[in-house]
Design a protein around this nucleic acid. Structure first.
Length: 289
DNA sequence: ATATCGTTTCCTGCTT
DNA sequence: TAAGCAGGAAACGATA
């Protein structure tokens, strides 16, 4: 079980408040594609949060889901079936550079696939899950613990082995990026049709493919509209975080809200609501229980 | 037009 | 007693 504990600087607080948000374990929910904050089961669904009342010795907890990989994983001996993106991303062996990503570290969209690092591959996978509503359950992330060159050398069969029917999509998308560059994403409708035409697979979630270009999702993913995405992205973007959120125990998914006022202000700016307060923001988080 | 979802806002009661 | 937190309930806006 993961937990995130946060101490916030709530305005007017008589003493530092302990605000803990906690991404928990299965078998709960559908908290999505956030490598750092929880376990990935399905892309883009709201997290399940449970909250326990804080005390002096045991700060407030907000438990945002978590997810396990499904038994669909073909390579369970390789990969702990309970291993999540949280686990993987917090594992130096799997994802050694994530913590140290900097603003000058190029994003995957600015690098040709063959030159992707492992981190780029993971970002691309996350993008595909988010963008095309691929069911992360279908994907054996361990099979994608490779760099771009290795990824590009994988056959379609290997993609299918690694991600089932989703592997077909991933393979198709990768080949298109390689051949067309990122212009493949420029026309969302064409992309949508192309992918739909490609296969009638059921690995797409019901909401299908969103008309959202890769640009808006890549470097500017902080503009995502959901609160949980906002928090997730903030935690995953050190250059945007500005010390507002800090990891307390990354492996357990525990983070600390250091600047609650700033967090609320940033969320208010995102939602174009200058009346947003940390009280409201925290209520919204609790609402997702 | 309607339903649903994800908040937003207000409120009350409990805890510290 | 004051301040913060938890959670119920209704309203709201976007979207399907």
């Amino acid at each position: 079980m993961g937990t995130m504990i946060a101490t916030c600087d709530c305005v007017g607080a008589r003493s530092p408040q302990a605000c803990v948000s906690h991404w928990v374990d299965p078998p709960c929910v559908h908290w999505v594609s956030e490598p750092a904050l929880g376990r990935v089961r399905k892309p883009l669904e709201a997290p399940e949060i449970s909250v326990s009342r804080p005390s002096l010795s045991h700060p407030q907890r907000v438990m945002l889901d978590s997810v396990t990989h499904s038994s669909f994983l073909p390579n369970a001996s390789f990969c702990d079936p309970l291993m999540s993106w949280t686990d993987l991303f917090s594992n130096e062996e799997y994802y050694p550079t994530f913590e140290h990503q900097t603003a000058c570290d190029p994003y995957w969209t600015s690098v040709h696939p063959e030159y992707w690092t492992k981190r780029h591959v993971w970002e691309w996978l996350q993008f595909c899950c988010d963008q095309y509503k691929l069911d992360a359950n279908c994907i054996s992330f361990c099979h994608f613990n490779v760099n771009g060159l290795q990824l590009c050398s994988m056959t379609q069969e290997e993609f299918i082995e690694a991600a089932g029917i989703c592997g077909e999509y991933l393979y198709f998308i990768l080949q298109n990026i390689r051949s067309q560059g990122y212009s493949f994403f420029n026309d969302a409708e064409e992309t949508k049709v192309a992918i739909k035409d490609y296969t009638g697979s059921s690995c797409l979630k019901t909401s299908g493919i969103k008309s959202q270009d890769s640009h808006s999702h890549s470097r500017t993913s902080l503009q995502s509209s959901h609160l949980w995405e906002f928090v997730r992205d903030l935690l995953l973007s050190p250059e945007e975080n500005c010390g507002i959120l800090e990891w307390e125990d990354r492996e357990q998914g525990i983070f600390r809200v250091v600047k609650s006022e700033a967090l609320a202000k940033m969320w208010g700016q995102r939602k174009k609501n200058d009346r947003m307060t940390y009280e409201k923001l925290s209520r919204a988080l609790r609402c997702q229980i």
